[in-house]
Amino acid sequence: MSALLLGHDDEPALAEEDVPGPVIDLVDARKTYTTGAITFEALRGVTLRIDRGEYVAIMGPSGSGKSTLMNILGCLDVLTSGSYALAGHDVADLDEEDLADIRNREVGFVFQQFHLLPSLSAKGNVMLPLTYRQNPGQSARAARRAREEAAVRALDRVGLADKAPNRPGQMSGGQQQRVAVARALVGEPALILADEPTGNLDSSSTDDVLALFDELHASGRTVVLITHEDEVASRAARVVRVRDGLIAEDTGARSFPTAVTEQGATA
């Protein structure tokens, strides 16, 4: 944990704006799964850099390694080799506890199945990431009030302030996904990582949610969206296509020779 805290001299929200450098800096990332005698290389050397404020769609057929890439980017899994820095934190060697903390502070997930807890209200669901964040030096009551205020602000931002007391079961799919986006926003993460966010939505709800991502992008958020729909990908300024564990095409790829050499040298 101490290694992590060193990178957190400032509030995460400030860090996002003040600390320069890419949000995602993945160099020669490899991920190998071994099941018994069979080894499978899901990622075979992926180098990807995404700067602050970018809106990137990652596309690829199933089995291309796109899900593995998303798990790596979201710190849900660790690399077999290569290096990955998320918002300036090298996460290659972190243990589960520190990975949980990085996810909590730097990643806002939006899932295809929404993954809202049915027993909690919309506000309760949005507050969830903040309840797992340690705020030393703050009384329990003050922390709770701060979390509630942040949750209401996030719900307001997705246009659902009036649904705060409602349970997920009382909301439409589009509304549920917007609550999930509010939950992704509430912790002021460096990265919003959406995995097929419109896969379970009808076309009008899809438009609502995609419009929300557009707004977030316009307000300077970094959004990475994993999808297989060209229509969804077309909203993004940059499209990264993954095939057979490699990046097949990157419409916005820029060359960062110095950064790559430095990272390559340290890795």
Binding site: G74, A100, P129, Y132, R133, R183
Partner: peptide, 8 residues
Amino acid sequence: RKALGAPP
């Protein structure tokens, strides 16, 4: 909960 940052 783990994805949202709950440690083990």
